[in-house]
Structures are given as C-alpha cells and as structure tokens.
C-alpha cells in the first residue's frame, strides 16, 4: 500500500471567488499583507502498489479534478 496525495487547484485564469472571500476575511482577524488566497482541494488516497502513475493521473483527471477549470498535482508519499 502507498499513500498518494492529489492536490487540485483552480486554473490561474479562473476567477477564484472563494479565495477572494477568504482574502477579504483575513482583514477581519487583523492580518494585513496577504495579497491573494487561492482555494483548492487536497485528496489522500491509499492505493495498492499495483496502481501505476498513469492510473493515478487518470483518477485525478477524470474524477478528482475537472480539467476545464482545474489543474492537479499527484504526489506519492
């Protein structure tokens, strides 16, 4: 078994309105100097050793992320 992490983020050109809302809220807890927050998703998968990298990218690209609006990074831990 192996632990695999998939991080999914909105593409740079996609307006991340949730990240913007978080940025604005930082001012309310008295934090200045954070110019941008972008919000994504973090998946942790426990996979059999038989699962190869191509399959992991298929998992990420066909289900965990929507390639129209999101990028992803697959990392084996």
């Amino acid at each position: 078994m192996a632990r695999v992490v998939v991080d999914v983020m909105p593409k740079p050109e996609i307006l991340d309105v949730q990240g913007q809302a978080v940025t604005r809220a930082l001012g309310r807890i008295g934090v200045a100097g954070v110019t941008e927050v972008r919000q994504g998703k973090h998946f942790e998968l426990d996979v059999d050793d038989a699962i190869d990298d191509a399959t992991l990218h298929r998992i990420a690209g066909e289900l965990l992320a929507n390639p129209v609006i999101e990028d992803w990074v697959v990392t084996r831990k």
Partner: peptide, 17 residues
C-alpha cells in the same frame, strides 16, 4: 451534462458568492 462531456465548459461558483 458538462461534467459528462456532452457540453463544453463548466459551471463555477457565482462571482458574487
């Protein structure tokens, strides 16, 4: 239908949240 690939594009969160 967009997620199924029958139509192009995607629907994202409303800009006004």
């Amino acid at each position: 239908l967009c997620e199924a690939g029958l139509l192009p594009g995607a629907l994202a969160r409303n800009s006004g949240l």
